[in-house]
Each structure stands twice: as structure tokens, then as C-alpha cells.
């Protein structure tokens, strides 16, 4: 018995090497190591020219958090934008998922595809497309002006509203998918049972459907919240450098100004914020919200 078990164990080890071996090595060298490096660098002092000095210090964090830096404001702004984006995505995404699941019939797969396909296109192209449509000069403005529906062009570019609109546009599909999956996961006899026990469709939705899709909702919230929080292209291209989010500052310090240690500290602060908020989401949404993501 023991010998057989040991044999099994050895066999498993033999199989582990070629299967999960490569990814383990890859993740160690090209995910963990880089993250560890920036965490480490964030605790080093920075010289006047931005170079890293061989001396441990909390100076970067002190400057960022209490030194009157614009970073805390950018982080708070990012959280706010991401939350608003999240709520609006939920407001549109839930009805979409519900509609596909309930009325999609044999076109369910196609309807779902139609939600996802645009997100397979290039990010830059999509933002540019949105800008061309709603910006000024833009196609929608031109159209409305020609029809005489508006007398002067409406310019929403370079405002927080435009940034949020862009974020919703980019991340909406990621809200629909997990909610759809959790809707499809509901055993139909539960819905029938609630009708049978006297629930009207509205009451049924509130007492059965909504609680049973909680995992999907929070899964979707996580999937849209993280990327929206860390986004930097939407504010750059639609916000026109006037509405900076945390990601823009990180990119600016790292690439443009070359202040690696400072940028690393920013990254650590943002990551900590993300992890904390995901933890809250998972606490609220239960284990299922995690499963819905993967």
C-alpha cells in the first residue's frame, strides 16, 4: 500500500515537471522577481537627479503621502472614477446579461459574442473611435449641428465625465460576462419554485435572482474595477492630460522623468490600494465572486 502510494507520488512529481514546471519558473522570474524588485527599490533613497542611492529610507513614501504631492489626490480621483465606472457598468451590464440569459433563446452565444467582440479590438483604436464620435470636432456633434438640434457644439472631451465615459466604454464587457455566467448558473427550478410559492416576477428577481447572482456582480465589479483604477490611456487620450489618474503619474515618473524609486513607491501604494479594495469586494461578494473571475 505504502509502496504503491509512494510510487504514485513519484509519478506525480515526474509529471509535474513538464506540466506546471515551465509556468512556475516563468512566473518566478518574470512576475514575482520584477514585482519584488520595484517593492525593494521603493524603499531606497533617491538622489537629486532621480538616481537610486544605496541607502534604505522611507523618504519616497513620506514625500508622496505627506509632502504635498499630487499623488494622493490622483489615487483618490482614480478610486472615485473607478467606482462610478463600476456602478454605471453594473447598471447597464446587469440588464444586458439578464436580457441575453432570459430572452436570448438560441442566439445567446451570438449575443454574448457581440458584447465581447469589441473588447478584442485594439484599446487605442476603441478610445480613438469614441473620441471621433463624441468629441469636438466629432461626428455626433457635426450631425446634431447639421440637423439643427444643437446650436453650438457640445465638447465633453478633457473633462472627468469624458474620462468616465471612456472607462465605461472600455470595461463594460467585463461586467457582462461574469454576471451572465452566474445567471446561467441558477437552477431554473428555483425560479419556478418561487413563482409557485407566490412570488411575482419582480419579487422573484429581488429575492432569488439578485442574491444568487451576487458572486457574478462582485466578480464583474473586480474585473472592471482593477483595470479602471489603473488605467492611464483613457485619461491620456480623452482627458487630454488635464485629468490625471494614478497610472498617468506612475508612467510619467517612470518613463518621462526616470524617477524609478518614486514611481516604484507610487506603484506599491496603488497596488496596496487595489489589494485592499479587492479584499473588500471578496468579503462582500463571497467566495463565488473569486470563482467567477477565473
Amino acid at each position: 500500500m505504502v509502496a504503491a502510494k509512494n510510487d504514485m507520488k513519484r509519478k506525480t512529481h515526474l509529471h509535474l515537471l513538464p506540466t506546471v514546471g515551465p509556468i512556475t519558473i516563468w512566473i518566478f522570474f518574470f512576475v514575482f522577481a520584477p514585482v519584488a524588485v520595484i517593492v525593494a527599490i521603493s524603499f531606497f533613497a533617491t538622489g537629486s537627479g532621480g538616481e537610486i542611492l544605496p541607502r534604505l529610507s522611507l523618504e519616497n513614501y513620506r514625500l508622496l503621502l505627506f509632502g504635498g504631492s499630487e499623488y494622493p489626490r490622483a489615487v483618490i480621483r482614480s478610486i472615485l472614477y473607478a467606482l462610478v465606472t463600476n456602478l454605471i457598468c453594473l447598471g447597464i451590464g446587469y440588464p444586458m446579461a439578464f436580457w441575453i440569459s432570459k430572452y436570448g433563446g438560441k442566439f445567446k452565444a451570438l449575443l454574448l459574442f457581440l458584447v465581447i467582440v469589441p473588447s478584442w479590438s485594439c484599446y487605442i483604436v476603441r478610445i480613438y473611435a469614441l473620441k471621433q464620435l463624441v468629441g469636438y470636432p466629432g461626428i455626433l456633434n457635426d450631425f446634431l449641428l447639421n440637423l439643427g438640434l444643437i446650436s453650438s457644439p457640445i465638447n465633453i472631451l478633457y473633462t472627468p465625465a469624458a474620462v468616465v465615459l471612456g472607462l465605461i466604454y472600455i470595461w463594460l464587457p467585463f461586467m457582462v460576462l461574469p454576471i451572465y455566467a452566474s445567471l446561467e448558473g441558477i437552477n431554473p427550478s428555483l425560479l419556478e419554485a418561487s413563482l409557485d410559492l407566490g412570488a411575482t416576477p419582480q419579487w422573484q428577481f429581488l429575492t432569488i435572482t439578485l442574491p444568487l447572482t451576487k458572486g457574478g456582480i462582485f466578480g464583474g465589479a473586480i474585473l472592471t474595477f482593477i483595470p479602471a483604477l489603473g488605467d492611464w490611456l483613457v485619461p491620456l487620450l480623452i482627458g487630454g492630460n488635464r485629468v490625471w489618474m494614478a497610472g498617468n503619474l506612475i508612467e510619467h515618473y517612470l518613463v518621462v522623468r526616470g524617477k524609478i524609486a518614486m514611481a516604484s513607491s507610487m506603484a506599491v501604494i496603488l497596488t496596496a490600494t487595489v489589494v485592499l479594495l479587492i479584499y473588500v469586494f471578496i468579503k462582500l461578494g463571497g467566495e463565488e465572486s473569486m470563482e467567477r473571475i477565473v
Binding site: N187, S189, L190, E192, A193, S194, L195, D196, L197, G198, A199, T200, I208
Partner: peptide, 16 residues
């Protein structure tokens, strides 16, 4: 169904 004076016990029980 929700106004019918008749209740089912489902084959798979359908407990919430």
C-alpha cells in the same frame, strides 16, 4: 403561477 392556489414539491426539491 403566483396567483394559483396550488403548490408543487419539485423533483429536485428546489430549496433556495
Amino acid at each position: 403561477p403566483y396567483r394559483r392556489d396550488c403548490n408543487l414539491v419539485f423533483q429536485n426539491l428546489a430549496l433556495f
